[in-house]
Design a protein around this nucleic acid. Sequence first.
DNA 1: CTCCATAGAGCGAACATTCGCTCTCATTTC
DNA 2: GAAATGAGAGCGAATGTTCGCTCTATGGAG
Lengths: 228, 228
Amino acid sequence: MEDGVFFEATQAEPLEGQGQTRAERRDQQIQRILDAAQACFVRSGFQGASMQQICAECGMSPGALYRYFPSKEAIVAAICAADREDDMTCFGVFRDATSAIEGLVDGAMAHITHTHKKGSAALFAEMRSESNRNGTIRETVDGHKREIAEMIAPLVQGAIDRGEIDPVVDLQTLMAVLMSVGEGIAINDLPARGIPLDRIETALRGMLAGMLKPTGKVQAENVPAEQA
Amino acid sequence: MEDGVFFEATQAEPLEGQGQTRAERRDQQIQRILDAAQACFVRSGFQGASMQQICAECGMSPGALYRYFPSKEAIVAAICAADREDDMTCFGVFRDATSAIEGLVDGAMAHITHTHKKGSAALFAEMRSESNRNGTIRETVDGHKREIAEMIAPLVQGAIDRGEIDPVVDLQTLMAVLMSVGEGIAINDLPARGIPLDRIETALRGMLAGMLKPTGKVQAENVPAEQA
DNA sequence: CTCCATAGAGCGAACATTCGCTCTCATTTC
DNA sequence: GAAATGAGAGCGAATGTTCGCTCTATGGAG
């Protein structure tokens, strides 16, 4: 055991072109760790994935890895935050939507498509359940929701004020139900289960129209016929 | 190792009235383990909870516990199956509902209320994410869904055949969206977040009416006015 | 020669599970 | 009714493994 240490010293290949500063290299390594960790977490869950698995996945030793993250918990938090940030790009449509229903449909569809393409439904489910016991993740998830809510609320309220819609319930309930529905659909990754996007969209539009009861003033043109 | 073993032999208090057979006692112990495990799993997750924590929670030694379950995995599976079975009691309404929309609303509300009272939203989230990597749990969860789907489908199809509703999409998409919505609302435990049940019900009814477009033949009376 | 980044051995703790054993008590035997 | 029997319930220390994480020696860059 105390014999020669024998270093192969492959020393992590230079990755790409060597013309990179220290900071660039550092960012690259961090990204490498995050990618590996995400793969492991999807495969085994936050608690089930071990640091050794993550090390193997990114071809780094524990010593090297701990230079970039102080703990496993920090990696989990970073991945959750990154995923949250990434998802937020879908919801920009809420900001400049003109119709409440069409805005909500567009945002939801963007999120469904994005989640499906990224293949991050499982990660979201993991985050969602971990948030029930991990304060940091709970804050990340709740912050995410609050941001979305703060984008949706004025959209709906504006449409109410203009007399375009007449929701069947108060705004708070509406928001809570809307967000829950969004979560449910995102977690289930319906496109992966053979449900075509355009049909999901049609169903969503009907659903929203039922809750938001368009008054017929400005609202969207009628539901596009579904193609066989 | 071969020295005096010294057994205190406290031997687990008789629990309740001693007038019980061995089999009764056994069932009681199994239930005790399941209750303890569920508490631990909700607190720490399936992977995060240790057998020692479960032992402490139910006041049993590891040796005793392993007499009733061959592995931790078996306890997880048993709890998932029991929870699934328990939830199924909510969906009996689907069987003998006369109106599709009202039947769906009743079933969903029963499930929401049940989940809230049991406080099992966190457990459901845990099951849902664990099902992404554990085959046994995936089968349990999927079996559960299939059973529910098999109750809902004829309810909706019957209403279509009778000309009471005219869904905006095909049955398959409708079912997928309906189940996802149910999951989303269940996981979020809206009643615990201050959303009154009657408003959830109103929102749900509107939502379903939008997707199932009642034709006006038999359908439910109009939405009850929401009280301030 | 001096840093920085790294590899990999190594740490103590905790893990799921098993072991050897004792004790209880319903049943059998007289 | 009393004694003997044996299956099952139970304890808690011990097993080997794996955990998250730290330490130290080493290679390459400047």
